[in-house]
């Protein structure tokens, strides 16, 4: 009798998708995250009304938009990082404790698929949360930009009339103002936040495969995140002053360090974009690549540990 003649592939997208979907539903139905999302949305909403209109000429309008964006994007980043760490740290220990893991692994499910499913479920939640918040952010920003623009046009009209501004001046200032509004660069920056959260979630996954408690996982992952950022700040400073040669001892030890603590230096682009810098499109590609490498590395290590784990 061979009702199941096929062999189980090690890696099946549909199976990973099923586990990811289940994980996503699980997190959504855990009211905590629901509340967190609602809270963040309210916080975003409040910011619409917080800042008074300071209608001024030139870049004052841009400044106002920047002041509006910074806390909002900061909140989104906080949301993404917290979910990445906490949700991941909660999931696997809970499955082990409740013995739900036995029932899953007793089906023809490779452990790698289980891990990837859990990770992708968390990423799905972060992505969904960020998407909702981005839509809101864009709406708020667009609305404020329109308000400022109409005032800007009035002021600029007067300035041109008084011959203080040329038409080119106006174009330039207008472009500058718009660069603080809803731009592709801003959407790109939020995608980079997602990348960062993905790395930290994969790191939390790795820690949770050998840790014995959720708290330990949360603490270690958070520390790694801060150390990663701290090193990034320090190294930038250090390399700026001393300059490290490619392949030198200093360079190699830096690289070793970045296995344990993700190298978040390139991710600082978010702050620069928020400050109004243009987002270079090729940077997005290289960031996606390094995100993929980090996530891949952590998943493979998790898999290795999880395979030998007594559950």
């Amino acid at each position: 009798m061979s009702r199941h003649p096929h062999s189980t592939p090690l890696f099946s997208f549909s199976r990973i998708w099923i586990i990811a979907g289940n994980t996503f539903t699980h997190l959504m139905r855990m009211k905590v995250f629901y509340f967190l999302l609602v809270f963040v949305l309210i916080w975003l909403g409040l910011n619409v009304f917080k800042l008074p209109h300071t209608a001024g000429p030139e870049s004052v309008g841009g400044e106002e938009l920047r002041l509006l964006k910074a806390p909002l994007v900061g909140t989104m980043k906080l949301f993404a990082i917290i979910i990445g760490i906490v949700a991941t740290a909660l999931l696997i220990p809970r499955d082990v404790e409740d013995r739900t893991l036995y029932t899953i692994l007793a089906k023809p499910v490779p452990r790698l698929d289980y891990l990837l499913g859990k990770l992708f479920g968390v990423l799905l939640l972060i992505l969904a949360g960020l998407t909702v918040m981005t839509l809101l952010l864009d709406a708020v920003l667009w609305y404020r930009t329109q308000g400022i623009l109409s005032e800007f046009d009035k002021v600029a009209g007067i300035l041109i009339e008084q011959q203080q501004w040329t038409v080119e001046d106006r174009q330039e200032a207008r472009a500058e103002l718009l660069s603080h509004g809803v731009t592709w660069g801003l959407q790109g920056a939020i995608l980079v936040i997602f990348f960062e959260a993905a790395i930290i979630a994969a790191l939390a996954l790795l820690v949770s495969t050998f840790s014995t408690s959720t708290l330990f996982t949360v603490v270690i992952s958070t520390l790694s995140y801060f150390i990663g950022n701290f090193i990034a700040d320090g190294l930038d400073h250090w390399q700026g002053s001393s300059g490290i040669d490619e392949g030198s001892l200093g360079d190699l030890s830096t690289r070793a360090l970045f296995v344990a603590f993700p190298d978040f230096r390139p991710f600082k682009i978010v702050d620069e974009v928020l400050a109004g810098q243009i987002f270079p499109p090729d940077v997005l590609g290289s960031l996606a690549l390094s995100t993929g490498l980090y996530v891949g590395l952590y998943v493979v290590l998790s898999w290795f540990i999880f395979t030998y784990k007594e559950i």
């Binding site: 009702r3 199941h4 062999s7 189980t8 090690l10 289940n22 699980h26 409740d98 013995r99 739900t100 036995y102 029932t103 692994l105 007793a106 089906k107 023809p108 499910v109 490779p110």
Partner: peptide, 17 residues
């Protein structure tokens, strides 16, 4: 993993999702 295609398991005191 293949060995698990033809088996169903009910663990001791199971909790499901």
């Amino acid at each position: 993993v293949d060995s698990r295609q033809e088996v169903g398991f009910l663990p001791e005191n199971p909790y499901f999702y």
